[in-house]
Design a protein around this nucleic acid. Sequence first.
RNA 1: GCGCCCGUAGCUCAGCUGGAUAGAGCGCUGCCCUCCGGAGGCAGAGGUCAGAGGUUCGAAUCCUCUUGGGCGCGCCA
Length: 574
Amino acid sequence: MRPPVKTEIENLLSKAIGEVFTAGDASPPLEIERTRDTQHGHFSSNIAMRLAKMLGKSPRDIAADIVEALPESDQVAAVDIAGPGFINFRLAPDAFHAELHKIICAEEKYGNSDLGGKRKVNLEYVSANPTGPLHVGHGRHAAYGACVANLLIATGHDVHQEYYVNDAGRQMDIIALSVWLRALQAQGQKFNFPAGAYQGEYVQTIAAELGSAEMPDGLFEALPEDGDAQLDLLIQRVCEALGEEGFDAILEVALDNILADIRDDLGEFGVHPDEWFSEKSLTSSGAVDRALKLLAENDVTYEKDGATWFRAIDYGDEKDRVVVRDNGRTTYFASDIAYHLHKRERGFEDLIDIWGADHHGYVARVTAGLEAMGQPTECLHVELVQFVALYRAGKKVQMSTRSGDFVTLRQLREEVGNDAARLFFVMRSNEQHLDFDLDLAKSKSNENPVYYLQYAHARVCSVMAQLAERGLSWDDETALRALPQLVEEHEQSLMLTLTRFPEIVEAATLQRAPQHVVHYLKELAQEFHAYYNAHKFIVDDDGLRNARIMLVLATRQVMRNGLGLLGVTAPDKM
RNA sequence: GCGCCCGUAGCUCAGCUGGAUAGAGCGCUGCCCUCCGGAGGCAGAGGUCAGAGGUUCGAAUCCUCUUGGGCGCGCCA
């Protein structure tokens, strides 16, 4: 299969440059861009201007030399020099026709590439604490992460998607305590439910599964004022009353329930991690101890105030970090560096972490940990996702995790549907705050981008149905021969836009920016709708009709592929 | 106080990791089906790219400073 048009131009250009400047000195990287205006052709290179200083010649002279040395190509119709020294390429109609054919043949694979070269990538996202149902913020993480995964897969990376389950630590103790207390209440025990415990209704649902619970004597006696200290004491007393095993059993019930709920929720949302990686397993497998030992061997830990500290400052962090507390328990951070080391040991070249923006201070810490354990810091890529604010009737919906008063992902999905949720979550850059307009997401109007995109797809389906109704069918041989008849401006620009898709996928992947795909699809839909309004596709002329149908089918294919990357369905009818 | 992110049309945002005259959608003004789905399309008005310096052939984009907003600075996870 022939290379994408852009690659063809790149090849031509680098050949020409190699011929003109045989000297092996470092030349600036080739940059081929789409022109904004077709007045300047279709592709443009600034290479002559980049070389000007190095060669001590004027950009336009250099450009002339390069153009002179440019090999012939049936894909290029014209090359000229413009402005300060741009080399502009105008593609031959043939190039577009070949690309259209390629779209039709490649089907769902159009846009895919081997950019990644089977590189092993570990992508960790969501990783919400299993202490309650996912809320809308997690939904954004899920949608974004899944899109990045789709992009990486489409561009030939070997992707492993992971959800890190924080099933160890104090938060889990608190959820277990919360469940237990609710179980007591369900049996008629009267007491004030602690403010710091988990308030959500789901806690009572889980408590109902627990069956009978017995109130230990003096459970609430002489509790300290401080909320945290209060919880810790309660946990300690319940632990004593039930025994370690009894308490763990409750914890397991809570964990299983909540995790099952999260798994279902994500599954319905089209998000399917390959692995649910348990934090606890890092301790039981000895991975944490190994990491700590490695740090000690590298002489980057020390003892102070009864705790073990990691010299994070030496690796660019703001302060040193505790890895083993004075009570002997390892910290969350210790698990996390062990986890990242473990990922590397499993053979992943790139580790992509998707975290909440509130974790940005954590980046330096984990990077420091990896480096101190002898790992290259470039292997870690952290993407931060900013917060989501919901708007209903123009007003911000108040949410607070603490009081259990938050909108869950499931509620959101039920209200606006999976497609709208998936699209809205990735419409904006991940590092930008997202204002999620619930009314817009629900509206069946042209303002709603979900409908705008899906409508373009459905419209093509409708055209095909109409074609069949008239007893006609599409024939690719006829279409191929007749492609030169597609001379209308709408057709030219639609073809041009279609050929950009692989470049968009590539750019979106490299920048981990699915919103590029969204914006591209809007543009494609816009051009298609304009074309639809301006011209009839089902015309009497056999050739022209088939050619137009081919163009429209290619549009549908790209729309479908793009929506697929975003995790949004492409319905035939709406 | 220190660190990270953000500031582009009235509103919500793009701007392809330095390119040619800064773009969409909504809203506003005026239009377009005897038609394959009007859930659509066309045209117009609307900008000191927060501000000031700098880097260079060239800056909304990169670097400093100022300013406004968000977030973070635990032996929590």
